[in-house]
Design a protein around this nucleic acid. Structure first.
Length: 292
DNA sequence: AGGTCGGCCTGGCAGC
DNA sequence: TGCTGCCAGGCCGACC
């Protein structure tokens, strides 16, 4: 499931292929993708516009088009973006075709580029944002700080956990507080920090919050370095898998031993999500209950 | 208002 | 073997 490192991997691969190209054709095959807009409305709004910049914020892939038009694309659980695929891949939900790169000389830049969005479970979305501050307002409503922002300090973490009784994992998964962390990187960050996912967020000490900041940034950076994790559906734009799943310290590793202390990795439920933890490195709070 | 849970969706798999 | 039903989970809306 694409989280920050997977979306950033897509952005880095895709940006040089689509920036400065006009979107000649766009076809939205699944009407859920563009809701509440009808696919035709979104297609007409985008067709013919040039991609000025491909950005990312949290787990959103942000298409900046000419004329102050933005498309905020979210891949949710099972979305992938494929460039120049052979034929029509299964579960294709959106097709795009881009023209030659503006002012390009090299043959590769004059060639057209085709792109498809695949998404078996159809949770993915594309939201149209028109004009000046629409994008900024959209993002501010939904997303807290980026973990790579210089303001993302232990003091910021202190601020967002203050008074919270919910488990720390629930806070990490809350995009309005920390942008881009999902189930995989929450587990990995908490293990790096030696903090149990069920610890009440507001009770963490300053030292724990500093370790947590390092754990979040460290896990996300490692994920980006490995070009993301491919558990089932995630693929690079050329169909290749990421490799971060081979570096998981706890996630999906129930029954194996912890690489730090040798203790057993167990699966529990935290914030309603399957959660992997080494309870020797990550001491559980008193009333924590283990399932399975 | 914070916290929790169900709905969306479908492939995959456990269990009969 | 083939069917049923449950699980996975990001995000949102409903409810306590």
């Amino acid at each position: 499931m694409p989280e920050l490192p997977e979306v950033e991997t897509i952005r880095r691969q895709l940006a040089p292929l689509v920036e400065s190209r006009a979107l000649l054709e766009v076809a939205i095959l699944d009407e859920r993708w563009s809701r509440p807009l009808h696919p035709r409305e979104l297609e007409e709004a985008l067709r013919g516009r040039t991609v000025e910049r491909l950005g990312r914020r949290g787990k959103y892939l942000l298409w900046g088009f000419s004329g102050d038009i933005h498309l905020a694309q979210h891949l949710r659980m099972t979305g992938s973006v494929l460039v120049d695929p052979d034929g029509e891949p299964p579960y294709t939900r959106v097709r795009m075709r881009f023209g030659a790169r503006r002012g390009a000389g090299a043959a590769g830049q004059r060639r057209q580029v085709s792109l498809v969005v695949t998404d078996p479970r159809r949770f993915g979305t594309g939201e149209l944002l028109v004009g000046g501050d629409a994008l900024e307002r959209f993002l501010d409503e939904r997303l807290g700080l980026e973990p790579f922002d210089e303001g993302f300090t232990s003091a910021y973490l202190r601020e967002i956990v203050r008074g919270r009784t919910a488990p720390i994992k629930a806070v990490l998964l809350d995009q309005r507080r920390v942008a881009g962390v999902g189930n995989i990187y929450a587990d990995e960050a908490l293990h790096r920090a030696g903090i149990h996912p069920l610890r009440p967020a507001g009770k963490l000490t300053g030292a724990q919050l500093e370790r947590l900041r390092e754990g979040i940034v460290g896990a996300l950076a490692a994920g980006i370095d490995a070009r993301g994790a491919s558990i089932d559906d995630f693929r690079h734009v050329d169909g290749v898998r990421g490799s971060f799943q081979d570096e998981f310290r706890v996630h999906l590793r129930a029954g194996e031993s912890c690489g730090v202390c040798g203790g057993p990795i167990v699966k529990i439920v935290a914030a309603g999500r399957g959660t992997y933890v080494c309870e020797r490195c990550q001491r559980p709070p008193r009333q924590a209950r283990r399932t399975r």
